[in-house]
């Protein structure tokens, strides 16, 4: 156990020294890895922010219940009672048809049309806040109320939010695809880097094999090198994303000031950053492992 830990500590140390020995090429490798990681990470930040913005902009989805024009006052109040007693209804607002007409008259551009009307074409309406805003629950509630007598039409007025949600879902799928492609490229980068490393260290591999090194002993520093490359690339990617969001926030402050609001782009969270680093290190490790498995037999004697 102690020897095992010692071997790992030494391999990690050797990998670090190797990274430090050629700083320029290491730097370029890190930048390539960082770009491969920063693209999906940046897109992820953008998507999360859009989602957050949508959630704050769009109020809870509401149902508007339009009562049939020919309904009597008694029938309207019956609907009112039924809605009030319904367990799924959280809040209820009654908009009488006279008020609706007043609103229409006050609305710019519509005043003339409303004046010209001989009689009020607008129905009584109820605006319903549901207890549970989940889309399927809302949908069931809508069909239920629409079947009541003297209810002309029930409208779910959060459809634009649903559409946006669907667009975001497409965005997430695109993000996943992009992340997959770039994960492959990260593996390919480490694979190739390790291959070059092994070629330049051909002699060392040969000699250590001849004096009794196991495959594990030879492989270990390369694995640490790959993981280290991934980790440093991940750190740089976090740095890129952080810088980009900070710069963007600086520009947004001026813009939001003009609109009298406060807009801010949220940074990549600590948890997401940590998983990005772990993911990058794991991919680097994987690329190194594949490379050593593929090339060890060719570099080493026999």
């Amino acid at each position: 156990m102690r020897a095992w830990l010692l071997h790992h500590a030494r391999a990690a140390g050797a990998a670090l020294r190797k990274l430090g020995r050629s700083p320029l090429s290491t730097l370029f490798n890190i930048i390539v890895v960082a770009i491969a990681l920063a693209l999906p990470a940046g897109l992820y930040v953008a998507l999360t922010n859009i989602q957050q913005a949508v959630r704050t902009l769009s109020p809870e989805p509401q149902l508007t219940v339009f009562v049939a024009l020919e309904a009597s006052k008694a029938e309207v109040s019956l609907i009112d009672t039924r809605l009030k007693e319904h367990p799924q209804v959280a809040r209820l607002r009654y908009v009488p048809r006279e008020r609706a007409l007043e609103d229409m008259k006050r609305a710019s551009g519509m005043g003339g049309i409303a004046e010209a009307l001989e009689r009020n074409p607008l129905p009584d309406a109820f605006v319903v806040d549901a207890a549970d805003p989940a889309p399927d629950v809302m949908d069931r509630l809508r069909t239920e109320i629409a079947a009541w007598p003297k209810v002309a039409h029930v409208q779910l007025d959060a459809e634009w939010a649903q559409r946006l949600d669907a667009v975001l879902k497409v965005g997430r799928v695109a993000l996943l695809l992009l992340a997959t492609v770039l994960a492959f490229s990260l593996v390919a980068i480490t694979f190739n880097t390790i291959r070059l490393q092994m070629l330049t260290q051909r002699e060392e591999i040969e000699v250590t094999t001849l004096i009794g090194a196991t495959d594990g002993f030879i492989r270990r520093p390369f694995l640490y090198y790959g993981a280290g490359l991934g980790l440093l690339g991940g750190l740089a990617a976090c740095g890129f994303v952080w810088t980009a969001t900070t710069v963007l926030n600086g520009a947004l402050i001026d813009l939001s000031y003009l609109y009298g609001a406060r807009w801010e782009v949220a940074q990549l969270s600590w948890r997401d950053s940590a998983s990005l680093l772990a993911f990058a290190a794991a991919l680097g490790w994987l690329g190194a492992w594949m490379s050593v498995a593929r090339h060890l037999g060719r570099v080493r004697p026999r």
Binding site: V207, T208, L210, I211, G212
Partner: peptide
């Protein structure tokens, strides 16, 4: 590898590692 640890090999072309000191070369096994 474990068999080779019971052997000491002296090569005609030495097979020393030229990027490290004499001491580190001897430390290798």
């Amino acid at each position: 590898p474990y068999l080779r640890r019971n052997l000491g090999l002296v090569f005609q072309d030495h097979k020393l590692l030229f990027d490290r000191s004499a001491f580190e070369n001897v430390m290798l096994p």
